[in-house]
Amino acid sequence: MNLRQQLGSGLSMAMVLASAFAFWKLFSIVTMSNSPIVVVLSGSMEPAFQRGDVLFLWNREEYVGVGDVVVYKLQEKDIPIVHRVVREHRVVEKDKKTKKKVQKQLLLTKGDNNERDDLPLYAYGQQYLERKRDILGRVFGYVPLVGYVTILITENVYFKYALMALLGLSALVQDE
């Protein structure tokens, strides 16, 4: 094994990563969502969505509708949440900075499997989600279970180490 081969395999590895990244960004542009594909992490939408299911998001509409399943991210929490919209209010209010009247869509969400709405989840004093600020996208399609690998990697340390050990070992013992 010489330097040329090593550089070559390094290059092809970089190629794989770069093309994955490019595809992700392409999806982002097409769907207009920051994270167009998400993996379900909680059971609050069961039996509709289970942990590990993969959801495809769409974010091109100006407003989302009642009954839509949306993914939202609260400002101070970093975890995206998949829940259903149970209330919408389209209101016209004066913007504090520009002093112009703007139409806002305010939303209340709820997990199908939860007893009540998401009010306790929101920040203290926050009554609604705002369409433009908080919503990552509307779920339009669904493939079950294939995202479970990511849950294994993030939540199970042993699985992560085993996977890394396997990759490292394969890099050491490969004979070309």
């Binding site: 509708g65 009642v66 149970v86 919408e88 389209r90 139409q103």
Partner: peptide, 19 residues
């Protein structure tokens, strides 16, 4: 998933939809 919604108008250009 089946749901009963009510839709009612507010002031000009305003509308609400609730489950």
């Amino acid at each position: 998933f089946v749901y009963l919604v009510g839709e009612y108008p507010g002031k000009k250009d305003e509308v609400s939809k609730v489950v």
